[in-house]
Computed example of a mutant assay.
Amino acid sequence: MRVNDIDIAYDDEGDGVPVLLVHGHPFNRSMWRPQVERLRDRHRVVAPDLRGYGESTVVPGKTPLGVFADDLIGLLDRLGLDRVVLCGLSMGGQIAMELHRSHPARVRALVLADTFPEADTAAGRDLRNDLAARVLREGMGPYADEVLDKMISPANVVALPAVAEHVLGMMRGTSPEGAAAGWRGRAERPDYLDSLSRVAVPALVVVGEEDEYTPVAVAERMHAAIPGSTLAVIPGAGHLPNLERPAEFTDAVERFLATL
């Protein structure tokens, strides 16, 4: 679908309360397949590829989180969806926080999974910009191989070979230009703790118990910041609990949706 002068690929399945699933970096909408297949029985589930990722248009340069959020608002407008349950993981969670900050009236409820609410440090900004330059030089393969056992737990790389292959395939298949633009934009993100303290809709914070990138302590900090929020820690999972422990992750989301 044409939105903001780019083409956005997306899945739109089921009927009922709409749920918008926002993928992480450097992935695509296929990371949500286990959730789409379960939630679509009771909900309308929309899972897009963000600009620069999957089958959506690649725009080189820098993509701030606000641009991703505006793309999602444009997609919701085209689909005739006013308010949605907004669910984002990792970078997708930061995009969800940005969308909530800039368009709070469009969010019926919020699910933030394995994500980080603060702005980058100077060292963090340098790292993201260095990674952007690196994948433009080398392609995505070396980076993907290097971080696989941080994206999912080392134990799950061994125990869940099909999941490991899927995660590796998404990373290797991402456009280096799209990934670099995403990294550069994230490096400049604001701190979201203040806007999270003003969340006035139901909210669920989810985290994999073994997540190295956004540990349980980070999720607890977000949970404490968001009034009335719920926290779910998924055992036996790293940074991608929706793929490593899909039943447990989706159970937590379904229990939350049942309270709306």
Score class of each variant (00 low, 15 high):
residue 118 E to Q: 14
residue 47 A to S: 15
residue 258 A to W: 04
residue 151 M to I: 14
residue 191 D to P: 09
residue 159 A to H: 09
residue 203 A to H: 10
residue 154 P to H: 05
residue 186 R to P: 07
residue 93 G to A: 05
residue 20 L to P: 06
residue 76 L to M: 13
residue 227 P to K: 01
residue 48 P to R: 11
residue 11 D to H: 09
residue 242 N to A: 13
residue 178 G to A: 07
residue 212 E to T: 14
residue 102 S to E: 09
residue 61 G to Q: 06
residue 178 G to L: 13
residue 83 R to L: 06
residue 8 I to N: 06
residue 152 I to K: 04
residue 23 H to K: 00
residue 94 Q to F: 12
residue 157 V to I: 07
residue 5 D to F: 05
residue 236 G to I: 01
residue 44 R to G: 12
residue 157 V to C: 05
residue 246 P to T: 03
residue 26 P to A: 01
residue 145 D to C: 03
residue 6 I to C: 05
residue 78 R to A: 15
residue 180 A to C: 05
residue 74 G to P: 03
residue 56 S to L: 06
residue 123 A to W: 09
residue 226 I to F: 02
residue 34 P to C: 11
residue 56 S to R: 04
residue 46 V to C: 08
residue 126 D to V: 14
residue 138 E to F: 03
residue 155 A to G: 14
residue 251 D to W: 04
residue 28 N to I: 05
residue 209 E to G: 10
residue 111 V to W: 11
residue 101 R to H: 07
residue 4 N to D: 14
residue 182 G to V: 01
residue 113 A to T: 13
residue 7 D to A: 12
residue 151 M to Y: 10
residue 149 D to A: 14
residue 214 T to Y: 03
residue 247 A to E: 14
residue 227 P to N: 08
residue 203 A to N: 10
residue 230 T to S: 13
residue 36 V to I: 15
residue 147 V to C: 06
residue 144 A to M: 08
residue 215 P to C: 04
residue 51 R to Q: 02
residue 54 G to D: 06
residue 100 H to I: 11
residue 250 T to W: 10
residue 123 A to Y: 05
residue 45 V to Q: 03
residue 92 G to L: 06
residue 251 D to M: 10
residue 2 R to K: 14
residue 176 P to W: 09
residue 7 D to W: 08
residue 211 D to N: 03
residue 249 F to A: 10
residue 220 E to P: 05
residue 54 G to P: 06
residue 61 G to V: 11
residue 2 R to Y: 04
residue 49 D to M: 03
